[in-house]
Simulated assay, not measured.
Amino acid sequence: MHQNAAVAASPSGPVAPPPPPRLTPRERQCLSLLGQGLLNKAIAHELGIARVTVDVHIASARRRLGARTREQALVKALRLDLIEVP
C-alpha cells in the first residue's frame, strides 16, 4: 500500500479543520485600522487608547493567529474573514 493512501484512509473519517482563532473586538479593531494603513500612534488616537495598548493588542492578535509579523497577522485575519478593511 502506498504510504499516502494509508494516511488518507483514516478509520475515523475525514479530519475537520480546526476552528479559526478568536480575536477580541479590540484586536479586530486594531488589525482593521492597520489594514487601512494607520500606524500604531494613529490607531491609538482613533480608538482613544495609549499607543502601547495598541502594541499589546496587535502582539496578542499575532500570537493567536500564529503570525510572526503584524503584516502576516493582518493577512491571516483577512483570509480567515475575522476582519474587514474598507
Rank of each mutant, 00 (worst) to 15 (best):
M1A: 15
H2N: 12
H2G: 12
Q3A: 12
N4D: 15
N4H: 13
N4G: 13
N4R: 14
N4T: 14
N4K: 15
N4I: 14
A5C: 13
V7K: 07
V7S: 08
A8S: 10
A9Q: 13
A9S: 15
S10M: 07
S10K: 07
S12T: 12
G13E: 05
G13K: 04
P14N: 14
P14C: 15
P14E: 14
V15D: 04
A16R: 12
A16L: 15
A16D: 12
A16H: 12
P18V: 06
P18E: 07
P18F: 08
P18L: 08
P18A: 12
P18H: 05
P19E: 05
P19Y: 08
P20F: 02
P21E: 01
L23V: 05
P25N: 10
P25Q: 09
R26D: 14
R26Y: 10
R26N: 14
R26L: 15
E27R: 03
R28H: 07
R28I: 15
R28Y: 04
R28F: 06
R28C: 15
R28T: 12
Q29L: 13
C30A: 13
C30S: 11
L31N: 05
S32M: 02
L33Q: 06
L33Y: 05
L34V: 09
L34T: 10
L34I: 11
Q36S: 07
G37T: 06
G37M: 01
G37E: 05
G37H: 03
G37Q: 04
L39K: 11
N40Q: 13
N40S: 13
N40P: 09
K41G: 12
K41W: 12
A42S: 09
I43S: 02
I43W: 04
A44K: 00
H45R: 07
H45E: 10
H45I: 04
E46H: 12
G48H: 02
R51L: 02
V52F: 11
V52I: 04
V52Q: 08
T53M: 09
V54C: 04
V54W: 05
D55K: 09
D55A: 08
I58M: 07
I58V: 13
A59S: 08
A59T: 11
A59V: 07
A59D: 06
A61H: 03
A61S: 05
R63A: 07
R64F: 01
R64N: 02
R64C: 02
L65H: 01
G66E: 00
G66D: 00
G66M: 00
R68M: 13
R68N: 13
T69A: 01
T69C: 00
R70K: 10
R70S: 15
E71V: 04
E71C: 08
E71A: 15
E71Y: 13
Q72G: 13
Q72P: 13
Q72S: 11
A73M: 01
L74K: 00
L74N: 00
L74S: 00
V75F: 00
V75Y: 01
A77S: 06
A77R: 03
L78A: 06
R79L: 11
L80T: 04
D81N: 08
D81S: 10
L82M: 05
I83A: 05
I83Q: 04
I83P: 06
E84S: 06
V85C: 11
